[in-house]
């Protein structure tokens, strides 16, 4: 690698390939993608329960001091749950998982850890995973309200 900065043009090979004759319209491509993703909704959502069960075990092991970086695994699983839940419009679950990511990230980067706050979030994420799309708006709001208050107490600066 040169010590001097170099700035140069590169060929946009993607543009050349995409402009070849044939293919489909943007509208057709987007609709086909939406249809295919919808077809894997059930199997994707089913995996959320497994992930939340895995998170319960990981959190318990971390709490017992069995992991060198206890919040990393919790963060990774919660981040995966957030990605799936948000892709399929499970807004309550995605908010709960996002909040748990905030906690785990805060604790691993210097905030005073609070295991009760982690436990409450893990339970909330697990419950919302099991309820899936069937959770009522009132129940979801009740769970989220509790998580928001816990999060505000342990991470007041964020």
């Amino acid at each position: 690698m040169s010590r001097r900065a170099q700035v140069f043009e590169v060929e946009n090979r993607l543009a050349k390939i995409v402009s070849a004759p044939g293919g489909r319209t943007v509208d057709q491509a987007v609709k086909a993608a939406e249809t295919r993703i919808e077809a894997v909704r059930e199997v994707s959502l089913a995996s959320l329960v497994g992930k939340s069960d895995q998170m319960v075990q990981v959190a318990a092991a971390a709490r017992r001091g069995e992991q060198a970086k206890p919040f990393d695994a919790i963060y990774d699983i919660s981040n995966a749950i957030y990605g799936l839940a948000s892709s399929f419009g499970l807004t309550a679950l995605s908010e709960a998982a996002f909040s748990l990511c905030d906690l785990a990230d805060g604790f691993r980067t210097g905030e005073e850890p609070s295991w009760p706050a982690i436990d409450v979030h893990v339970d909330g994420v697990r419950l919302l995973s099991m309820l899936g799309a069937g959770v009522s708006a009132a129940d979801a709001e009740s769970i989220l309200d509790g998580l928001r208050r816990v999060r505000a107490r342990v991470l007041p600066s964020t």
């Binding site: 293919g23 489909r24 319209t25 943007v26 491509a29 993703i37 199997v43």
Partner: peptide, 27 residues
């Protein structure tokens, strides 16, 4: 939205650590 895109011969790599997330990207 009526613009045509031909990705049939494009070589695309998808990388994601979560199998289900990777599956959604692939679909």
């Amino acid at each position: 939205k009526g613009e045509r895109v031909n990705l049939s011969s494009a070589e695309v790599m998808l990388a994601c650590g979560d199998p289900e997330g990777l599956n959604i990207l692939a679909e």
